[in-house]
Design a protein around this nucleic acid. Structure first.
Length: 593
RNA sequence: GGUCUCUUAGCUCAGCUGGAUAGAGCAACGGUUUUCUAAACCGUAGGUCGAAGGUUCGAGUCCUUCAGGGACUACCA
């Protein structure tokens, strides 16, 4: 990369002028801001102590030295302590000639030794997926792609929370009020049907609480002693005792849900290398608890419950096993962590889980470290913020959720309406159009969710539908479609080349080439931060740079054939990078729209 | 109460390890199409970066305090 060459040269210059012994890695340069002329900027303020001259003089000295020393630069200018370097145009021209034929431009060579496991999605099986789950799924999928692009061997898994009191609630409601209803008989996706009974349960539960309070009980008592919640708890107990009838209902309803989830996953375009089910793994952690007791990492209280004291680490005392010997959440996670390590042997394990569980994962990692687990340091909680609605947080029980399937359908409808209104796709077949609507609708939704920094909570206002203009997925998809249209009309382009001495770069053209040039760095940065948002911002900038270029420059009608070839190749690489970048986000790009 | 986290334009968000005059999109206003897709392009307007101190040649970015939001702090998962 040019940046590296420049740093080396700067290191040499500083050595020569001031006797400074700085390696290239110690030197940082930045992109020159748009308001100034130049490609790269070197800030000299930190070096005034060794130059013992004023900022301008120092920058000029270094600039002059660089010009004699290397062929890289065309010129430089100095403003205050900022040395702006302009590299020779040939650099950019060589770059496009070379990379336009590289189909994996920007990707790092795979390295088998750097295996990473990404766990994401991890739904409960008592209700359908909502907008928050979509964010989780898209993040997990995208992060996995980004890590692959960074050369890691990546596995993905989904830990399904298929057991517990919440499922029993849906089961109980269905057993009491369902009259044998099935997804087929109700004409409802399985996950929605099960979710329906979760809501029914809650309705009855609330009613019973009200009645109890009316008859003189406190709210707390009422919540604990409502007959229906007691019945649900009894059902859980039966489940744990392997009662055949209970297990049968549980399996049936879970299978309904899985069939429903599968459809949603398909629409979202996510998939997993392996599914884990808590019903299979929830007992595993107990062995680890035993192990920790033997090494005195854990201790037992009088009532036989097992704890760990993390107060020295700034955390609290934490229960790891109940007095009756049943496991809690952390027990299961310890077991699952061990299992995942045995299955995949990854030195890094990323958990894509909401930030409400920050504390839980701190505890999990701490415990693993105290137990000297080889995977302890590799545990990483990719914590993302909640999606909030204008009226606050989403709550399934209260019905204030944006349902995943509904939202996807709405996005596709909007895409269809917009496409029809523009009337550019007349004459295409129905199946192609359906595909296109899906591509555009999902493009809008995915981009909308991924462009926000994962760590931050985000706002979604259902009343204002997701935009298709400006900084959006469809705008970038549209940019791609326009390029493809040019390329279709350009004829044979694979053998195309140009003579650099016969072309000239306008400011806009150069800007576009420089943007393309940055793609590999962007992939690295996104990989380091595990942030799809970085890719979004970059691809948007690229699309904008291209749109400017497209508006101001003719491609196919350019009479200078070398210039024409250069522009066609620039178009080609731009389309390639848009497609590649969007691929990292799980968004596809249409040929026409 | 304690721990963590967030606060940038009317709205939704960018702002890389501290660097030049804080940027986009939407919304508002104005302009651009006989020429490769106007889901586009160009422009105008919009800001004490929550507040106050501090560190630094330089702070939206680092530190402290405060204010306001959110999460967590269960023998729930």
């Amino acid at each position: 990369m040019v940046q590296d060459l420049i740093k080396e040269q700067l290191s040499l210059s500083l050595q020569k002028l001031y006797g400074a012994t700085l390696s290239a890695e110690d030197i940082s340069i930045e992109q020159t801001s748009d308001d100034f002329e130049g490609d790269f900027t070197f800030v000299v303020f930190p070096f005034l102590k060794i130059s013992r001259k004023n900022p301008e003089q120092t920058a000029n000295d270094i600039g002059s030295e660089l010009l004699v020393q290397t062929e890289l630069f065309a010129s430089f200018n100095v403003i205050k302590g900022f040395l702006n370097l302009i590299v020779k145009e040939q650099i950019w021209l060589d770059f496009i000639s070379k990379e336009v034929h590289n189909s994996s431009f920007g990707f790092i060579e795979p390295n088998i030794n750097e295996a990473v496991l990404v766990e994401y999605s991890s739904p409960n099986t008592n209700k359908p997926l909502h907008l928050g789950h979509i964010r989780n799924n898209l993040l997990g999928f995208s992060v996995a792609q980004i890590l692959k692009a960074n050369g890691h061997k990546v596995f993905t898994c989904n830990l399904v929370n298929d057991r517990g009191i919440h499922i029993c609630k849906s089961m109980l409601a269905w057993m009491r009020f369902g009259n044998g209803e099935t997804p087929d008989s109700a004409q409802l996706k399985g996950d929605h049907l099960v979710g329906k009974y979760y809501v029914i349960f809650d309705k009855h539960y609330k009613k019973e609480i009200e009645d109890l309070i009316a008859s003189g009980h406190t709210e707390e008592e009422a919540k604990k002693n409502a007959p229906i919640i007691l019945a649900a708890q009894e059902l859980l107990l039966k489940w744990e005792q392997n009662d055949p009838e209970t297990i049968a209902v549980w399996e049936m309803m879970n299978n309904w849900v899985y069939a429903g989830f599968e459809k949603t996953y398909q629409k979202l375009g996510v998939q997993f290398d392996k599914y884990y089910y808590e019903s299979n793994t929830y007992l595993l952690g107990k062995e680890i608890v035993q192990e920790g007791l033997e090494t005195n990492v854990f201790y037992k209280k009088e009532n036989q419950s097992v704890w760990i004291d993390l107060s020295e680490d700034g955390l609290d005392q934490k229960l790891v096993l109940r007095g009756d010997g049943t496991s809690v959440y952390i027990t299961q996670d310890l077991g699952t962590a061990e299992l995942k390590y045995n299955d995949f042997n990854c030195n890094r394990s990323i958990y894509v889980v909401g930030n409400e569980q920050d504390y839980h994962f701190k505890v999990l990692q701490k415990i693993a470290q105290k137990l000297d687990k080889p995977y302890a340091d590799g545990i990483f909680h990719l914590s993302y913020g909640m999606v909030e609605l204008p009226e606050g947080k989403m709550k399934s029980r209260e019905g204030t959720v944006v349902d995943a399937d509904d939202l996807i359908a709405t996005m596709e409808e909007t895409a269809a309406e917009t496409t029809k209104a523009l009337g550019k796709m007349e004459g295409e077949s129905d199946s192609e159009l359906q595909n296109l609507y899906h591509t555009i609708g999902m493009g809008a939704l995915k981009y909308f969710l991924l462009k926000v920094d994962p760590k931050k909570k985000m706002m979604f206002n259902p009343a204002e539908s997701i935009d298709f203009q400006g900084n959006t997925g469809p705008f970038i998809q549209y940019t791609h479609a326009r390029i493809k249209s040019i390329l279709r009309n350009a004829g044979e382009i694979n053998a195309l080349s140009f003579d650099s001495s016969k072309v000239q770069l306008s400011k806009i053209e150069k800007n576009l080439l420089v943007k393309l040039y940055q793609y590999p760095l962007v992939i690295k940065e996104a990989g380091k931060d595990l942030s799809p948002g970085i890719i979004c911002n970059y691809v948007f900038d690229l699309a904008k740079a291209y749109s400017s270029f497209y508006h101001d420059h003719q491609v196919l009608n350019e009479s200078n054939l070398d210039q024409r070839a250069l522009r066609i190749l620039t178009c080609k690489l731009t389309a390639q990078v848009i497609q590649s970048g969007f691929g990292l986000l799980g968004i596809s790009v249409p040929e026409k729209m």
